[in-house]
Amino acid sequence: MKISLLEIFKVFFIIGLQLLGGGYVIVPLLKKYLVEERHWLNEEELTDFFALSQCIPGIIAGNIAVCAGHKVRGILGAITALLGIIVPCFLAILIIVQLISGFTDNQTVQNAFKGIRISVVVLIFITIKELWSKSVNSVFSYFLFFAIFAALCLLPISPVFIIISAGLISLIYFRLKGVKNA
């Protein structure tokens, strides 16, 4: 039996509404709605999709939704699932921006935002701490990390250039190392 696109949209819309605080939150939600309640996926597929989503550029939650939607109903399912995730955040941003713009001249709100900007810096540092163990965990990666950091401090380099060159350097390094060990 084919699952209707409307049903797919509805489920992902509900998941999108509950996504608060980073892409990883989507995994337990998918497990609840897709694996346990609807049996559209099994647990193993979900784990595979999660691993895969991290190896594809882009927003992790969006990528997992595309994988899951594709499994359920092919390309159309993938598009529907992605729309289901995007639409609620799109609307939420529109509404929240309208709400905030009425208050921005207020002195207390401005003081609050001064503190909020510091929270954002704190959140970025916490994210770095979380990324660190997964990304900077060998002599090679320490070296690469500090080389990039130093380069950024000295020159204004585009992030695109940094990402491409780091990928290439890493590929070449491990290829050569592999040859030497073999």
């Binding site: 595979d48 691993a51 895969l52 190896c55 810096v121 970025i124 540092f125 994210t127 770095i128 990324l131 660190w132 997964k134 990304s135 900077v136 090679f140 990666s141 690469l144 990390f145 500090f146 990039i148 950091f149 950024l152 401090c153 992030p159 940094i162 990402i163 060159s165 780091a166 990928g167 290439l168 350097i169 890493s170 590929l171 390094y173 491990f174 290829r175 592999g178």
Partner: peptide, 26 residues
């Protein structure tokens, strides 16, 4: 794709660069 060595090698660099970029901005 998941078990492709070259993809994994490149991603070690990608992740490291993403972390360094974010640290610099922070």
């Amino acid at each position: 794709f998941q078990h492709n060595k070259d993809v994994n090698y490149a991603f070690i660099g990608f992740r490291c660069a993403a972390c360094a970029l974010l640290t610099y901005i922070a």
